[in-house]
Design a protein around this nucleic acid. Structure first.
Length: 442
RNA sequence: GUGAUUGUAGCUCAGCUGGUUAGAGCGCCGGAUUGUGGUUCCGGAGGUCGCGGGUUCGAACCCCGUCUUUCACCCCA
């Protein structure tokens, strides 16, 4: 076994993989553009301080850092105990949202607000790989900044619905609101423990209500506080009934009540384009979310979320441009492809050439090349076998690369200015004049 | 970062309580068959047993480390 292999958590994509991924990207790109989003690409790495502190403690740990260039060790004060900042000042991007916010802050004066962009690029995380989890993977993001209108949320949910419908993947789009979580914490007297409260609540589907209660107690919540949080553990049930229940429960909290009303407004409109579920246990880790949050779960296949997003009220504020509210969604390309593969929903996309021109002898090679060029001029994807070889070998190769037709162009064909074209699937063979190559039904 | 798990030919895998030249199927190469294959037959090549140490008369097999795979936790797409 060769030791040559891609780095941990990364993969190569062979022709068939690339075709499948392009198919999915094509669908997403068309949906993005149909909703008026323009493309943006940003560098694969950013200054470290652009990324640090935006994703929470756990996120910071997973950022791939790049070693400083040059002889940086000589400026390290204590080589036995170097500080991180002495070794690294750049990092691979962890997501597309923060680089986007950096871009918006930098160009705020020139951009027409609200500004909407989509971005399809790889991101990197120093995570331990497992199912559907890689260290290099693609995110496909659409964001709008410069408006706090809830219609943006409605349109983004619609984009989720349309994109997944077009891909044929059954999904549940779940929605929640950071303000609702803050409201719950507030009425339970846990306003300062929002993170502890939500991190545990987020695990409800995994560890069950007893598990969540236990974790709350572990995190030092009092019995009274735990009791006050009980309504959050009740099954969601009907969407509007749940909203009514939340409204009554959180009436004492201003943020909580406002969040419930926003959700009510959103749900009334976004449910028109597809299924939308309210899930008060949905927390999402990314620190910067402040309003509605989304997560997309593929149905019928065990896989982490295939998409997520939400509203962030002041992400550009960190970069010196305050007062810009933004909202965005992300599609996880790699997981979507895995789901589609597992469910057999991907068309078999041929990537092979349409024709392969055979070579019979050195003396006939010039004509074979001529024919190959004529085919290419006609727009036919054509491979010229590189040397005269046994016919069996050439047929085997043609099959292996997935060629549709074998083209025989030797001395006898040249004499009559024609070629023999053999369909490699059916075995049918036809004699076609050189002048008719373009009109042949390839 | 934590805890398990995996690694033998190009691929999928055998390989006994450690024992002598590590096997199979498929694939590959050559021939039967120097312009019409995918069948068949014959022959052949190909392995630092992930890597590095250690134990032993002797290690693919036992021990330690390391890398990698898969999975769970954490977190997330």
């Amino acid at each position: 076994m060769s030791q040559a292999r891609p780095a941990k958590g990364t993969r190569d994509f062979a022709a068939a993989d690339v075709m499948r991924r392009r198919h999915v990207v094509g669908v997403l790109q068309r949906v993005f553009e149909r909703y008026g989003f323009a493309p943006l690409e940003t560098p694969s790495f950013e200054n470290l301080d652009t990324l640090m502190g935006k994703y929470g403690e756990e996120g910071d740990r997973l950022i791939f850092k790049i070693l400083r260039s040059g002889d940086f060790m000589k400026s390290v004060a204590d080589p036995s105990q170097p500080k991180a900042s002495e070794l690294t000042d750049k990092a691979l991007r962890y997501d597309l949202t923060v680089p986007f916010a950096r871009y918006v802050a930098q160009n705020a004066g020139q951009l027409a607000m609200p500004f909407r962009r989509y971005q399809i690029q790889p991101v990197w995380r120093a995570d331990n790989p497992q199912k559907g989890r890689f260290r290099e993977f693609y995110q496909c993001d659409a964001d709008v900044v410069g408006t706090s209108s809830l219609w943006q949320e409605v349109e983004l949910v619609a984009m989720y619905h349309h994109a997944f419908a077009e891909l044929g993947l059954d999904v549940a789009v779940r929605v929640n609101h950071r303000g609702l979580l803050a409201g719950i914490a507030e009425v339970a007297g846990l306003g300062d423990r929002l993170i502890d409260f939500t991190v545990a609540l987020d695990k409800l589907d995994k560890i069950g209500p007893d598990g969540v209660r236990a974790e709350w107690r572990e995190r030092g919540f009092t019995d009274a506080q735990c009791a006050a949080l009980e309504p959050a553990l009740q099954p969601m049930g009907d969407l509007n009934a749940t909203l009514d229940r939340m409204a009554a429960w959180l009436s004492a909290s201003e943020v909580g009540s406002a969040a419930v009303e926003e959700l009510r407004w959103l749900v009334a409109r976004a449910s028109a384009t597809g299924r939308l579920e309210l899930d008060v246990t949905l927390a999402r880790g990314l620190n910067y979310y402040t309003g509605c949050i989304f997560e997309v779960q593929a149905l019928g296949v065990a896989m982490g979320s295939v998409g997520g997003g939400g509203r962030y009220d002041n992400l550009t504020g960190i970069f010196g441009v305050p007062g810009l509210s933004g909202v965005g969604i992300s599609f996880g390309l790699d997981r979507i492809v895995l789901c589609l593969e597992e469910l057999g929903l991907l068309p078999d996309l041929a990537s092979g050439p349409q024709a392969m021109v055979f070579q019979f002898s050195e003396a006939e090679s010039d004509f074979a090349f001529q024919v190959a060029e004529a085919l290419r001029a006609a727009g036919i994807r054509t491979v010229l076998y590189p040397e005269p070889a046994k016919i069996k070998k050439q047929f085997d190769y043609a099959d292996k690369i997935g060629a549709g037709y074998a083209v025989m162009a030797g001395a006898s064909e040249q004499a009559e200015q024609c070629v023999q074209i053999k369909n490699l699937r059916t075995g049918d063979q036809a004699r076609v004049a050189l002048a008719d190559l373009a009109s042949f039904s390839w």
